[in-house]
Amino acid sequence: MHFDAFDRYHDTGSFIHRLDPRVKVVVTVAYILSNALLPDGAWTAFGLAWLFLLFASALSNLGPGFTFKRSFIALPFALAAVTVLFSIPGSPLSTFHFLFWNLTITDMGLLRFVSIVVRSWLSVQMAILLVATTRFPDIVHALEHLRVPAILTTIIAFLYRYLFVLVDEVFRLLRAREARSAAAPGSRSGGSAAWRARVAGNMAGQLFLRSYERSDRVYNAMLARGYTGRLNTIHPHEMHRMDYIVTVLALFIILLFQLIGRI
């Protein structure tokens, strides 16, 4: 069984896909940083940042709805920001009664709330674009090039490789549990929450042991191919002139957003 649902990469062979992964990682982070730096209510700058995103989407041939459709993943978190609607001083816009509170939405509160949501919404779409246009192993290579310690990038590479294998195992365990959780007619299935947690914990323990034993076998396979404790990697990516041009241009535009957002 393949869990292709885990693959976020969509190959369209576009210009953006062919850029060096470092360029995409750096520009994505700069873009998200820029959004965070823009002051509340910098609508022109937010609008331009959105156009930048649309332009990058168009260049990557993914279709206009691609990042939009997937952009709601961070939305539930907006709940955490709801309180600023009422807590920031400003002129009242509307007052309503909720349970036993009288809540007043202020204009400054609304401004801040919408700004937070817009920042998050733009940032998450750029991150979606990054993984849709860059294969995950290439992102790991980019991190290597950008001096993330080798031990971390190696763990991340292993994690990515074995994610699929272990998630397969989890689903076999879950299916086995389901196959055996029948309920007598009229009675509720399964025991107490504690009992169910125990079953889940046994599954986690089971999975842990299998993973542990697998790491032994993988270690042997590494030894058999000359591993002595030092990891050597080949750096397959080279920055071309186009990569430099795109980086400079994109960073310049992002800097412009800051300028516009502050005037």
């Binding site: 031990i151 190696t154 763990i155 991340i156 590479a157 292993f158 994690l159 490789r161 074995y162 994610l163 294998v165 272990l166 998630v167 195992e169 989890v170 365990l173 879950l174 399964g190 929450a193 169910r196 947690a197 079953v199 889940a200 599954m203 986690a204 999975l207 842990f208 993973s211 542990y212 697998r214 790491s215 993988v218 270690y219 590494m222 404790g229 990891l231």
Partner: peptide
Amino acid sequence: VPLMGIMAAFIFAAQMINFP
């Protein structure tokens, strides 16, 4: 190194084990 890598995959996969 392989132990930590596969344990990371284990934690990731174990987070998917849920119970009602």
